[in-house]
């Protein structure tokens, strides 16, 4: 009985102290971590959208938030949103920028990816991402992913990364899929107002 009481007391004390230390430490670091996250988000939005002065958030659904870039004259330059899907490895998250009429992309940024280093993770390279600027989306987007050469029409095609065709196709696929979803949600929201 005596040992079990001691066991309970010791463990409780250790756990309590640990909890105390952690909540204190969390108080110090949490604002900083939040700030870091916001910085990453802002940077991603500014990469994918044309020049804007500030942005507004519009919650479309539980998961999807639309970031609307606006100039000082209240002109909307484009929408940005996070698109999630699977690449060659799971959990590929993109920031997609698109014109307000959903006609063409204004840029993409890779937020999170676990693609193969040296091959698939080159989707992060500027050279690959810049191909998406000006890519036509339309109602039925028809994007060709070609290998080893530049696409004939740069507004309708992407050159796949050599050795990483699957990752390249995945990015295109995620964008097409998510743009459609976001566009529907947005139109519903606008019609509702």
């Amino acid at each position: 009985m005596k040992t079990s009481a001691k066991m309970i007391i010791v463990l409780t004390v250790i756990a309590t102290l640990s909890g105390g230390i952690l909540s204190f430490w969390n108080g110090i670091t949490a604002p900083k971590i939040k700030e870091n996250r916001l910085k990453v988000l802002k940077k991603a939005i500014s990469t994918v959208l044309p020049k804007y002065d500030n942005y507004e958030e519009l919650k479309l659904s539980e998961e999807i938030t639309l970031y609307i870039g606006k100039t000082l004259k209240e002109e909307t330059v484009g929408f940005a949103f996070k698109a999630k899907g699977n690449g060659f490895s799971p959990d590929l998250t993109l920031m997609v920028g698109i014109l307000p009429d959903f006609s063409a992309l204004t840029g993409i940024e890779i937020l999170e990816q676990t693609e193969t280093p040296g091959l698939g993770n080159k989707i992060e390279d500027d050279e690959f991402r810049e191909q998406f600027v000006g890519l036509l989306m339309g109602i039925e987007p028809n994007i060709a992913v070609v290998k080893n050469r530049k696409p004939k029409n740069p507004q309708k095609g992407i050159q796949a990364l050599s050795g990483a065709t699957i990752s390249s196709k995945a990015v295109v696929f995620i964008i097409i899929e998510q743009v459609k979803i976001v566009q529907n949600l947005y139109n519903q929201k606008m019609a509702g107002i």
Binding site: V10, L11, I14, A15, S18, I21, L22, W25, N26, I28, T29, A30, K32, I33, N36, V40
Partner: peptide, 23 residues
């Protein structure tokens, strides 16, 4: 159990520290 609680505490401290200052 006690060791793990102690270790986990320090690990969380490091984890938060890295996330805050070297993201």
């Amino acid at each position: 159990a006690s060791y793990i609680v102690v270790i986990a505490t320090f690990v969380t401290v490091v984890d938060k520290f890295l996330a805050a200052y070297t993201p």
